[in-house]
Nucleic acid binder design. Sequence first.
DNA 1: CTAGGGTTAG
Length: 629
Amino acid sequence: MTQTSPMPPLLGEATLLPSLTAAAPHHVLRALHAHLLVSGRLASPPHLAAFLASLASSGHLAYARLVLPRRPATLLAHNALLRALARGPRPGLAFAAFRDLPLPPDHYSLSFLVRAAAALAAAPAAAGERPVRTEASARRLLVAVSAHGAAVRRGHAADPHVQSGVVSMYAALGDAAGARAAFAEITCPDVVCVTAMVGALSAGGDVDAARDLFDEMPLRDHVAWNAMIAGYVHVGRTREALRLFDEMQSAGAAIGEATLVSVLTACAQMGALDRGKWVHWYMRSHGMRMSVMLGTALVDMYSKCGVVATAMEVFESMGERNVYTWTSAVSGLAMNGMGLECLELFKRMESSGVQPNGVTFVAVLRGCSMAGLVDEGRTCFDSMKDKHGIDPWLEHYGCMVDLYGRAGRLDDAINFINGMPVEPHEGVWGALVNASRIHNNVELGKHALDKLLQIESENDAAHVLLSNIYAVTQNWKGVSRVRGMMKAKGVKKVPGWSAIEVDGKVHEFFVGGKSHPRYKEIEMMLAEMSRRLRLQGYAANTKEVLFDIEEEEKEDAISLHSEKLALAFGLIALPEDVEIRIVKNLRVCKDCHDYTKLISKVFDREIITRDRNRFHHFKDGTCSCKDYW
DNA sequence: CTAGGGTTAG
């Protein structure tokens, strides 16, 4: 190395600054430090600032605190540190740094402080802690208010960067009123502030207000579009999300990763495989990098559309995976009934170095329970605390009851409930109800339903089930009592629907719905289906089971569950060599399940139904769930 | 040297 300039050529300006802002291992940071010292660049405020940020984001805070006081205090350096802390894993540290500032803070300092408060508010509960309203959340509110207060006191509350931060900070806290109030203070909000408010309103569930604001925006950039699309996805209004995405493309806004992640989430929710595949194609044809988030969203979309093989291909192709990625894949295998593969993947995750979290355990426990892997599930549950230090949530207890109950080990399920260190919640009793249903234990079912209704007096499905039990056991007084209870409490059944995608368009069917433009054909097909099933000896059957879910309301005895309408439409509208994919919002009832199995055989079609809980892959007269759901 | 949008379960 020849030294022709006063600066050593080890690292040129072009490579030095970017490498300074990124997180790096300790030995690299030491080398950088030495380099900066020798070259004299540690005296340059931008270099010092970048170096401090790099130290902080690499977690070497003590190191940063050692370097900082030896240099003349500049806000530039201190702000860089604040910024890194605010974006780091422990945003609370930014508050300590703010308190210890040797100079009066400027609008940069305040914007970072507000960001730190927002990050703190949004921070998921500590590992193992079930997300609940605690003193911790009250403290977060105080912190947020104090950050906002500091901005006001220091006279920086009118800075646009601070303002947008304040709005999204209240949104992160779930304080929609706070966000509205802060937004109302802004005399002339710019695009960024309005976008923050669109996000805040969506997060608060008021998407329509968000949309009004969005429509009034004089100028919408791609982030504003993304915020609005995400808002719709967030509340499950997926069709509106996709429609807005179409408008976004027509408007010529830049489609980026965030957009596609939201679009994929929408496709996953509605089971729109064709649109999901289109996004995948779009990514490839535009040379987009398969980032962790995009890859995860793809794995999730393919899983929720029942195409596990492709989900796994994407998963395997990813260079980097985080908890979300692994959990998506584990959960995808679980809901498609692939218990052994699910367990195997979970073990791979454990050795991959990515720590599973509570959600991962919900997924793997569900996988075990779907496949009847009782002992394996128990081992997972025990390892959660012993090996991973995660305290079980109520959801995990519910999974365990489901695991024992489904396998017919009702005594174990009851003993497990009795041994719980916390009060069982609705999910636990719901799992016991379901187990009683599967194993035809009316007494236990009634007991569990009573408990469930004590906790969730408005639970529509529980009422329906209880009434069904009474009906099947010919207790008509019981039936009318439950009906009366429902009326008195104003409990309404959730309307059932089934959806099917044809040529990229999602068609929805409701019970007894005759509004579809091709209803005449559907009706004829239904008649044809009945005729051919009768030849196979099928008779509508609900007598054999003591009580069935029948979550979906029929208007009268002859009308059909929405699922059968969708199935008939699929038989008409899809080519013969294509599998029929149905998504429904409730669980499949026994009759529809039997019916679909036979249709798959008689019509020689593969049928894939996603219900509220899981997938059913019907082929040749059998179902992947082994009649066990 | 700032700001706004995005991924896992139920």
